[in-house]
Design a protein around this nucleic acid. Sequence first.
DNA 1: CATGAAAATGCGAAGGG
DNA 2: CCCTTCGCATTTTCATG
Lengths: 153, 153
Amino acid sequence: MTQPLRIDDLDRDILKALMHDARIPYAEMAKRFNVSPATVHVRVEKMRASEIITGTEVVVNPKLLGYDVCCFIGINLNAARDYHSAIEKLKELDEVVEAYYTTGAYNIFVKLMCHSIEELQYVLIDKLQAIDEVQSTETLISLQNPISRNVKP
Amino acid sequence: MTQPLRIDDLDRDILKALMHDARIPYAEMAKRFNVSPATVHVRVEKMRASEIITGTEVVVNPKLLGYDVCCFIGINLNAARDYHSAIEKLKELDEVVEAYYTTGAYNIFVKLMCHSIEELQYVLIDKLQAIDEVQSTETLISLQNPISRNVKP
DNA sequence: CATGAAAATGCGAAGGG
DNA sequence: CCCTTCGCATTTTCATG
């Protein structure tokens, strides 16, 4: 896996198209980029094999699923060595959708999605702060998400 | 749009499957959930129409595209009313992949992806801090991303 | 990298519980 | 009203040049 793969402009174009719509027909990309559908197929397979493309997923609107509250929480641990066990416990909380090991003010930084402020309060107090390894937390509530996109290939 | 749509267990199962693999055949979901492929089709169309599903995308590995540095930056603006114009300028920076309007210590919170620490330094000093509306920034570098997933339908 | 044919999948109409 | 069966159209996939 992960050989030092060469990505050319065609790969980049295909990738950009697929990052915008994973179900766009190969024939359409072929027409757009002036190659045959089979060539598109080969390139996509190559990028899957080299794990540049790791999968596909539908994009959902969390609000319409009832997730109205989005926030970030900086976590300080009692001891830095508690990192791994803390992460394992965070994985069990469905509300934690992202976690990062960070330098700076916090040991762990997480993104949380909740149905309501009440639920956030419950998750924060009774689930997150109930974790032994957690020493303190700092919460940042997001009111709006004006930019959300992927890296440029 | 967005009528108060009822989501039942079948919808949830289909959604979960599609969030894991947007190209899973309807026939396979049909077998798994004991309904006909056409029913799966109808449910997916319903969720697309109600905008619970807003699209599909391939999942890429940013590291293999050369994006080795991920960080979060808290931004304070000179004045809170500068929010909209600041966001417009942030949109023009390809390295800014997410932005949030937040309560608490910062006005705006962004996620940045860069190819290297050198590029981060350049983006931070010559692009981000060069924005008139920006008063100060605080950077949080992510060394690892042990949790990354979607909300539970 | 292109061609073309075979297999798989998506799609929508029409009918039944 | 929702689900299913069925047939056609599109798309993917692969062998060959």
